[in-house]
Amino acid sequence: MNKLKGLLLCGALFWLSGCASGFGRLPYDSWRLGLFAPDYMEVWIETADAVDIHDRAYRRAMSGVAAIQLPKNLKGNPRGWPEHPGSGAGKQVLGADVPRLLYVRWQSLVEPQTYEAYIVIPKATQQAMLKGEKTFCKADAKWITDYRNMLTVGLAPGGIARVWLGGQCLKPIDVARVQADVVEVGPSGGKNEGRYALPLKPAAKVYIEKYGIPYGSW
């Protein structure tokens, strides 16, 4: 956690200095950070933090329940990632420039286990977030200039974090795949006597009991 604290302190000092060159250069008001989990593989997000290219830190840009599908009668398929991942459950990151780092700490409720991941955002991704693209938007049947201003993070058992960059009407592109580390102190920073945030929902519990966790598919 010392690494993260250092980043957050640096970001806070930079913010207070008021000397962030390039502030507000985005061609849109904010970008979105969203998170999801494969079918039945429930997670609880302790925190999802962002650090932009000026080292400004946005603590708990997202936390809580990730987006997930829990189809009835065990008809869902948690193996692998969807071809077109959605935007996930998330929030707009206001006041930030393009990100250079994401930090996610989450509880994998199906195992159970707690993980943390540092996700470096490549320069090519940062550049893609600033570039408008002409595209046909099916939602209103019009040609528009759209931007890839949505970062979506998939969180899977075994500590796998996968990231995509997309736009409202643009096909998502791969950004990164990261193997997270186990948080040795356990959930909630070791302050909750090892208890996890939520019990498994019935559909997830039944799926795991019958089929197990498809490690290696993510």
Rank of each mutant, 00 (worst) to 15 (best):
L4D: 08
G6W: 07
L7H: 05
L7E: 11
L8I: 14
A12F: 14
S17R: 12
G18R: 10
F23E: 09
Y28H: 06
D29Q: 15
W31D: 05
W31K: 07
L33T: 04
G34K: 09
G34D: 12
G34T: 09
A37Y: 02
D39K: 00
Y40V: 06
M41Y: 07
E42D: 12
V43I: 07
D49S: 09
V51N: 03
D52N: 05
D55Q: 14
D55G: 08
R56V: 15
A57L: 14
R60I: 00
R60V: 04
L70D: 00
K72M: 14
K75W: 10
R79D: 11
R79K: 15
E83I: 00
E83K: 03
G86N: 07
G88W: 06
G88T: 06
G90E: 08
K91V: 06
K91F: 13
Q92F: 12
V93M: 09
V93R: 05
A96G: 08
A96N: 05
V98A: 03
Y103E: 01
R105V: 01
V110P: 05
V110N: 02
Q113L: 13
A117P: 06
Y118V: 06
V120M: 10
Q126K: 03
Q126G: 10
A128I: 01
M129A: 07
M129P: 03
E133K: 11
K134Q: 14
T135E: 14
A139E: 11
A141S: 08
W143D: 13
T145Q: 10
Y147A: 10
V153D: 09
G159M: 09
I160L: 13
A161C: 11
K171Y: 07
P172W: 01
V175M: 01
V178Y: 01
V178M: 02
Q179G: 10
D181M: 10
D181H: 12
V183R: 02
V185D: 09
K191Q: 10
E193Y: 09
A197R: 10
A197H: 06
P199I: 02
K201M: 13
K201G: 12
K205H: 13
V206H: 07
I208T: 11
Y211H: 15
G212E: 11
G212P: 10
I213C: 12
W218D: 08
